[in-house]
Write a protein that binds this DNA or RNA. Sequence first.
DNA 1: CTGCAGGCCGGCG
DNA 2: CGCCGGCCTGCA
Length: 284
Amino acid sequence: MKQFILKNNKSFNLKDIFECGQCFRWNKQEDGSYTGVIKDRVVNVKKSDDNFVFLSNNDEKLENIIREYFDLDRNYENIKENLSKIDEHMKISVEYGSGIRILKQDIWECIISFIISANNNIPRIKKIIENISKNYGKKIEFQEKDYYLFPTPEELSKATVSDLRALGLGFRDKRVYKTTQLVLNKDFDIDKLLYQDTNSIREELLKLDGVGEKVADCILLFGFNKFDVFPVDVWVRRVMNELYIHDEDETKVNKKQIRKIAKEKFLGIEGLAQQYLFYWKREQ
DNA sequence: CTGCAGGCCGGCG
DNA sequence: CGCCGGCCTGCA
């Protein structure tokens, strides 16, 4: 079996990448490696001495796919250095999450996953997405285990609203159903958005049922790899208030104001800054 | 038993 | 516009 090996890289750490909150389907194995799905294949990545070894059920173009998915052609050293110069807070959080990389995830999967994330907790989000994949996605065998691809819009369109409810989506069932229909019918055309600017894509995403500003920004960051967004959830609001705003009632801080401050402060790569701050604060 | 978790929607002022 | 109540579900 062919494998792709990534040589020692200071800005690449499995825990930081998979547990900073950007993805839901990478699971830690007993040997410390992580297994997940990229496009139409299962991939396992394991740290071995100073290297990272990638294995897959499908070797074709493996390196290219890994390179794109893990954002390997971006110079994180340089970015981190610049962010660290901004202030002591950024310096600390960048050091803490120094192995983070922004994954380039499938946009369709991102849309559905973050609709599901609304007013939800991570274990349950993961469980729901796993249920959806098991019931509607294609099965792939890898290392003597069964894995499931995230279903295509066509595959997921087989699920009725009550089917979705039975998988544990709760009130998000209709949102996922409606969005699936729109994508399937090309009333929402992902391909047409690919080369548009952040604000145009954002405007389109906000038309989807279940996509508000926070979810839209997550899709922009983790699906479109647009770094000029700043997803504001309760954790980000909390940390931004503590560090920069100092309002006595954190819940009263305006989210639009937070995004504005981030845009001014974080050099147009506020999406990455958000990940460092979020991960650092979450793990306190 | 309440509270709450990586928000969003809809109604209202 | 901005604000606010309600919301599936599972776990503390």
